[in-house]
């Protein structure tokens, strides 16, 4: 009995954003990373095309992350004590992108200065050939001071600056515009809030193909279904032709999975949770895998083993 395959063609397409610049483009990256560009639901390659696979970014902190799970500290070893070494290690672990996360203070409690941020960014750019993203500490004054300096220091490198939020995006967007960078905007698990922030950023003159949106997610078992459905709705809107949703999506399953007790700690948990290491890797891997199915274009991860797992899954999903 012949069955007619129900193909769905969409009028809209996600914009393609290019992160990083090689020497030919005025930067120093060994390659650029393109994200987005699809005109189909995630991995539905019988309906349309995904010119770029989802990409993996690894989080690198500018100071030793003492509050991270011992499993992560063990995986990174001494590399986690130096952002440049860490960035190199992330590249070796298979990352497509490095996300440099700046802290409010240095070891010893002194505030991170603009000069510190410049030096750290420079060191990371020299240590890795991957395109980078730099996120501020998340406090308005510090973000503005540090990210303006970072934008100047990395001029020409086409980095992603973040995190733009509705309460604070103008300075970050202006800095990115002045030095040819991209921005990442985050909103709290809501389709309309995401659209609204994209509009605000675009209204400042930022081309849409230089905006990445983070609709915010949650860890497996901790509300991931909210983020998952918001992402599905955003992607459907994009494919249906809503311009202000046609931006690549970045989410942070690493952060979300590793802050949960399931991943973070090995003691004082129910026996039914099983082996700690297995559970922790599963938690981050499944959080990331599930978000791929909802349309994630950039996944920010933390554990090298997860990167290997998620990359292998992406490769299988993209295989023709």
């Amino acid at each position: 009995m012949p069955v007619e395959i129900p193909v769905e063609k969409w009028p809209g397409r996600v914009l393609e954003a290019t992160i990083g610049a090689t020497a030919a483009e005025g930067g120093t990256r060994s390659r650029v990373v393109k994200v987005g560009g699809e005109n189909t639901l995630p991995f539905m390659l019988t309906d349309g095309e995904m010119p770029n696979p989802p990409r993996i970014a690894m989080e690198v902190l500018d100071r030793y992350p003492e509050d991270w799970s011992p499993l992560l500290l063990e995986a990174w070893g001494d590399a986690a004590r130096d952002p440049a070494q860490w960035a190199k290690a992330a590249e070796d672990a298979g990352a497509d992108l490095v996300l440099l996360q700046l802290s409010l203070t240095r070891d010893g409690g002194k505030p991170t200065t603009a000069a510190d941020a410049r030096a750290i960014t420079r060191a990371v750019l020299q240590a890795t050939g991957l395109p980078i993203m730099v996120f501020g500490p998340g406090q308005v004054d510090a973000d503005n001071e540090l990210l303006v300096a970072v934008a100047e220091e990395a001029a020409g490198e086409r980095i992603v600056l973040g995190i733009c939020e509705e309460k604070n995006y103008r300075t970050i967007v202006a800095a990115a515009l002045a030095s040819g960078h991209l921005v990442n905007g985050r909103t709290a698990m809501d389709v309309n809030l995401a659209k609204q922030l994209n509009i605000l950023i675009a209204d400042m003159g930022m081309p849409l193909d230089r905006i990445i949106m983070d609709p915010t997610t949650a860890g497996l078992g901790y509300g991931i279904e909210y983020g998952y459905s918001v992402m599905e709705r955003l992607r459907l809107a994009a494919l249906q032709g809503d311009k202000m949703t046609q931006l690549p999506m970045l989410v942070t399953p690493g952060f979300e999975a590793w802050r949960q007790k399931e991943s973070k700690v090995g003691e004082g948990v129910p026996a039914s949770w099983g082996d700690w290491r297995e559970r922790a890797i599963l938690w981050e891997t499944l959080t990331a895998t599930n978000l791929l199915l909802a349309g994630a274009n950039v996944l920010v991860l933390r554990h090298p083993e997860t990167v290997r797992r998620v990359r292998a899954f992406i490769e299988r999903m993209m295989a023709k």
Binding site: L220, G221, E225, Y228, E262, W273, D275, E278, R279, L282
Partner: peptide, 18 residues
């Protein structure tokens, strides 16, 4: 089957079917 795998999949199933 392992407890960790079962826990992760069962939680995900509840999440998606909520």
């Amino acid at each position: 089957f392992s407890p960790a795998m079962a826990y992760a999949l069962l939680a995900w199933r509840v999440n998606i079917y909520t």
